[in-house]
Structures are given as C-alpha cells and as structure tokens.
Nucleic acid binder design. Structure first.
Lengths: 233, 233
DNA sequence: CTCAAGCGAGAGCAGTGCTCTCGCTTGAGA
DNA sequence: TCTCAAGCGAGAGCACTGCTCTCGCTTGAG
C-alpha cells in the first residue's frame, strides 16, 4: 500500500526526485548560492511556477538536499566502517574519518551545505537531526565497542566540567564513562574542523600531503578519546 | 604626504569606509547572502551605480569585509593575549582560543564569512593571507615561547609523515621541532572546528555548558601540542 | 586658467524568488 | 459508470538583485 500507490503519486515521486537530482547537479557545479529554482525548472523543461507544486520554497529544496547530503555522508562512512569491521578500534576510527574526508572532497558544495555556514536566515528544521547524527553515532559506536572489549583510556576532567559531563553522558551514552563522552563530542567537532579547513582553503600553502596529515591527525584525535594504539588489538 | 592628501582622496576614504560600515551592518543583520549593494547604496542615500566607483563588484566588497573581519579577530586575539602575558603558555593558549570563540559568538555572520563555506564561486585572493594568519601566528608564538622556556612535549610521528612534517616545519617554524609544528597546524584547525560546530548549531541539544566545554577542550588540544599542564609554570 | 579625471544620477538589461489566476487532466467516490 | 474536486502546468506579473553605460556636473592638478 506504500509502493503501489496511484499513478499520480508515483509520478509525483519521480518528478520530485528529478528536481532534486537536477538541483544537486547545479549545486555541485556552482554552489548553493547560485542554485536557482528557475534554472532547475528550465533544465527540466517545466516552467518555474510548476516547481512550487513540489517544493514550497527554495529553502525547502535546500533542506531536502541537506538531508540527502547527511544521509549520503552517513552511508559512505558506514560502508567504509563495514569494510574494516574486523580491525582494531583505532583503525576503524581512522577509516571512518577518512571516508568522511573523502566524501567531502568528492562533494565539496554538499559538504559546505551541511558543515559550512548555514544558509543565512535559515534554521535547519528538526527533520535533519537523525540524518545529521549518523557519522557521530558511528564514531560513538566504535568507542563503545572499544570500551566493551579492550577498554578505553580515561583522562580525568576538571571539577567545573563534571556537571556538564554527567549530563552529556546521560543523554548521549549512559554506558560510557562521562570523561569519554565529553572527549568524543570534542573529537567529533575536531575531525570536521580538519576537513573543513582543508576543504575551504585554510591549508593552502601550509599543508601539502594532506592525506597523510589527516590520517595522522585523526589518529591522534582517536587516541585522545581513549582508543588504543594501532599496534595493540 | 599620506595623511594630508587632497580633499578628494580624503572624501574617497570616508565614503569607502561608510560603505563598508553599512555593509557590515547588513551583514550582521541578515548574513552574507542577503547583503545587497543596492540596499547599502539606498541606506547611504546614493544610487546603486555610484557604489561601483568604490567597489568594482559585490565580491570585492565582500573581500574587503573578509580582510577586516580577519583583522578584527586577530586584534581581539592579540589583545586577549597581551592581557595574560605573564601566565603560563597553556593558560595563554586557552585565553587566545576563548577570545577567538568570543569574537565568533559576537559576530557570527562575519565568522561565517571567513571560516564558514567560502562564498560560492569566489576564491579568496592572496590579499587576505596576512590578515588570515594572525591567530595562527599568535598560537605559534605561544608554543615557541614555551619551547624556549619550559620546553614542549614531543609526540613521535610515523615515518610516512616525516617528509611532510619536515617540509611544513621548515616553511612555518624552523626553530620548532617538526613534530610540534605538525601538531600545531592540526590543533589550529581543531580549535576552529569546535568554534564552528558551536556556532553553526551542531552542538544544539548536545552540549549545554559550552563555555566550560570549550575551555576544557582547547586546553586538551593545547596539551596535545606539547604545552605543559596548568599547574606547572 | 583649463581640461581631463572623478564622481553621482538615471535608465536599462538580464536574471532571481515567489504569487496568482487560468484552464486541462485525472482519479477517487457516489 | 459518471462526476467533480483536487492536482497540475502554463503564463503573466511583482519586487528585487548585480551590473553596465551614458550623460552631465565638479574639482583639483598641471
């Protein structure tokens, strides 16, 4: 009853995804600011007003693209993780980070859409939350596995951070030590900081061998979360 | 001969900075994408075409704002650093990072302009490089001081990173150990990763006490660069 | 004192997001 | 099986954008 809807509904789905595809094409070519509803409609052989039957505004189209981008990134990361399921936690951590970086380099404008400055005047609706969490949850899963098997190193935290750490850990991962949860959230932001700096040109004329640099840096970040050294299991 | 120019030149400077001021106002209010040359001109009581006598295009206006923003951030960081010149390196490191975060929270749209996704289709000219480096150089100075006085901890790097590390160190800070230079560049990106995540809403419903969280996180990053613990000199 | 350079005003072009109205089509319910 | 409202595309139009070009006034350097 969900797939075998009427022809009308099926056509609507097709047109909707054709619009998103073309929009994604233009996004990849020229970036979000130059994404034009009229140009999308033109390319699809329809008139611009017809497009508003599918997306009530340009921002809604962008939101759809954002969710798709989060999902695409999440899927890339999860695929990469599945491919190294049998190695140690730190290696898996690095593999996931490298997958995220690779995805970002392949689709810079989509990355900018989700981790760059949000489109001005626009607040991401809660709809995006689940898709946005996938990479973070994946990284957390790695740390959780490590915690259960080989254990994780715990760095003591200052007293002033204790309330926030406990609250954050209770919300996020009650089974992990609060110290680790805090470090994990920070690590998550730091990994994307590295990706963003590379992508947005801050490393120009500074870092040359960016792949090696990234691998080493995220490996140290992973170590900072408490993951063990590559040599160990 | 540079300040006492003709009245024409002085007027030009005044009008130019009036344009930038009004543009900055609109930028702060609505973000970069909604910054409109026509609206700026309107507000200044001039016609839009007249504005092109001062900035050849909208992108050039944005570039001017970008440089000013880098300088403003750099100045905020340097002022904060000067205010704690007599404390230990790690404390100074944290103070500079907190100043950068504070500046970003106070001027989110300007921060987005320089560390968020670059305005699409637009490549920052080399003009911006010196202004853009100020915070990085400041952080490097702190590590250099620490290296000269109390010394910095050196984390060994893998062999595959050795060439890049040596090249990077030679370019950036020949007086610092290559291991430290690499860690410093990564730390630089990681600090701004934390700021960006907070500013762009990634920490919504995740981190509550963001100030404490940030202070702890950048302190750990500083420690990762080799700075000593707060207790020590 | 002069005359070119600097400047502001205005009209105009091509493009944008978005709205509204008009008819055609189509499929679900009587 | 027939009908009629809902869904849809087309077109015109509004208010806005960045940018160009031409026209005259002003002004300050030679």
């Amino acid at each position: 009853m969900s797939t075998a809807q009427g022809a009308r509904a099926r056509a609507r789905i097709e047109v909707t995804s054709a619009i998103k595809d073309e929009a994604r094409r233009q996004l990849a070519a020229d970036g979000a600011a130059k994404l034009s509803l009229r140009a999308v409609a033109r390319e699809l052989g329809m008139v611009s007003s017809a497009l508003y039957r599918y997306f009530p505004s340009r921002d809604d189209l962008l939101t759809a693209l954002i969710i798709d981008a989060y999902d695409s990134l999440g899927e890339a990361a999860e695929t990469a993780h599945a491919a190294v399921a049998d190695v140690g936690p730190l290696r898996r951590w690095v593999a996931v980070c490298e997958a995220a970086r690779g995805w970002a380099l392949r689709r810079p404008h989509e990355y900018a859409l989700i981790y760059g400055s949000p489109v001005p005047g626009y607040q991401a609706p809660d709809t995006t939350v689940p898709a946005a969490s996938r990479v973070g949850l994946l990284l957390m899963g790695i740390v959780r596995d490590a915690h259960r098997s080989v254990g994780v190193a715990r760095t003591p935290i200052p007293a002033e951070l204790r309330p926030e750490a406990d609250r954050l850990a209770a919300d996020l991962a009650p089974d992990l030590p609060a110290e680790v949860s805090v470090a994990l959230v920070a690590a998550w932001a730091q990994v994307f900081g590295l990706i963003g700096f590379e992508l947005f040109g801050q490393f120009n004329r500074v870092v040359e061998d960016r792949e090696t640099f990234f691998r080493y840096s995220v490996s140290r970040i992973g170590h900072g979360v408490g993951l063990v050294f590559p040599g160990n299991p």
